[in-house]
């Protein structure tokens, strides 16, 4: 299944093309080519290296909780 995972933007490069996101404490660089107006502290949905949309922190939290539940069911 292709899931898009919420992550918090912790840093953005000067050219605004790349962001560092934090996913469960693991840092990862992703492309911002598909989005405008992303700032540090925003939550974005990431999929195969791209940020797809901005989402609210509440939405991100709900989705992450759901995904954690999923992991539990699977294990």
């Amino acid at each position: 299944m292709c899931l898009a995972i919420p992550a918090e933007v912790v840093a953005i490069t000067e050219d605004k093309q790349t962001a560092t996101v934090s996913l469960d404490g693991v840092r990862k660089d992703i492309s911002l080519a598909l989005l405008t107006d992303v700032t540090e502290g925003d939550f974005v949905l990431i999929h195969v290296g791209y940020a797809l949309n901005k989402i609210s922190p509440e939405e991100a939290e709900r989705t992450l909780a759901l995904m954690a539940e999923l992991e539990e069911v699977a294990s």
Partner: peptide
Amino acid sequence: DLLPRLFSLC
């Protein structure tokens, strides 16, 4: 309610 939150792509 759950499906679109898990599968935000499709």
